[in-house]
Amino acid sequence: VTSGICSAFAIVITCIRLYMRRDRFWWDDACAFLSMIFLFVQIVSVFMHVPNPRVLSHMDNIAAYYLMAATFYAIIWTARLAILYSVIRIDPDPRTRRILHRIAIIFIVILLIMIAQVLWVCEPMHDWKNAASPQCPLNKQVAICQLVTDILSDGLLIYAPLRLIWGMDAIDGTRRRLMIIFSTCIVTTIVSLVHAAFILTDGGIRVVIAAIVEDTFSLIVCNIPVVVTAIMRKYGKNEEESDHARQS
């Protein structure tokens, strides 16, 4: 239920974003689209694994778990890449843009490492694979790595737009977008803290639920700046046209 409701909202807002950006499609939109595709894969793996694991073979259940784990990281980090590329797209400083491009590469490397970490932590352990609904008991190593990378990356995604805000006029539409990015990234950090806490306390199914919520929030957050800014721009334009009509 959690997966269906949260994912549906995230997918809808992503589709709205892609529709609004259809004439100006860029890397940030591509990353948001890719994150949505990973979310579709995760939905399939969740409904394969959680509701009735006896429907699948033992190996299929294990594969479904690994698929859930891999798509968890893929959704989050491609969503972060979408935010990062949104900042790159609107940053006028070529030097800063080059730095942020390099950070994007680091994000991709972190994604691959986090997925690999699940394998090297879970594969040596065999007991969890014998459960009816296999779920690897992730250790403190995973929780700490996830927590550190989440805080650092989200902190960067807060700082990057913040440094631009200081030099902008209050009426600048770009500043509104950056303020939205600044505020919404904090939500992802809070959710990731809850997820890490469940991992540390061996939360069982709560780990899966928290992961789904974190995924969907990450995808929603990366779309909010684009969608809200487009709505504000359209609303402002309509207001301006109404003012002109009244003056005429």
Rank of each mutant, 00 (worst) to 15 (best):
T2K: 04
T2G: 03
S3M: 15
G4C: 08
S7E: 09
I11C: 05
L18A: 10
L18H: 07
Y19G: 00
R22W: 13
D23A: 07
F25S: 04
D29L: 07
L39Q: 11
F40T: 10
F40E: 09
V41D: 01
S45W: 06
V46H: 06
V46A: 05
F47D: 11
N52D: 15
N52C: 08
R54H: 11
S57N: 05
S57R: 02
A64R: 03
Y66A: 07
L67A: 15
M68H: 07
M68G: 04
A69S: 13
I75F: 06
I76Q: 14
W77G: 00
W77P: 01
T78H: 15
A79I: 05
R80L: 06
A82G: 10
I83K: 10
I83E: 12
S86W: 07
V87M: 01
R89F: 12
I90F: 12
I90K: 12
R95K: 14
I106A: 15
I108F: 13
V109Q: 07
V109M: 14
L111N: 12
Q117A: 08
Q117W: 09
L119C: 08
C122E: 02
C122P: 03
D127E: 14
K129N: 04
P134K: 01
Q135K: 02
C136F: 05
P137G: 03
P137W: 03
L138A: 09
V142I: 11
C145Q: 03
V148T: 07
L152N: 02
D154L: 12
D154Q: 13
G155V: 07
L157E: 05
Y159D: 02
P161D: 06
L162V: 04
L162F: 12
L164Y: 02
L164Q: 14
L164F: 01
L164A: 03
W166D: 05
M168K: 08
A170L: 09
A170Y: 14
G173H: 04
G173W: 03
L178F: 15
L178V: 01
I180G: 09
F182Y: 02
S183V: 04
I186Q: 10
H195A: 04
L200W: 13
T201S: 15
G203A: 09
I205C: 00
R206E: 13
A210M: 11
I212R: 03
F217G: 00
S218W: 06
N223K: 03
V226S: 13
R233W: 03
G236S: 09
E241P: 00
S242Y: 12
A245Q: 08
R246S: 12
R246M: 13
Q247I: 12
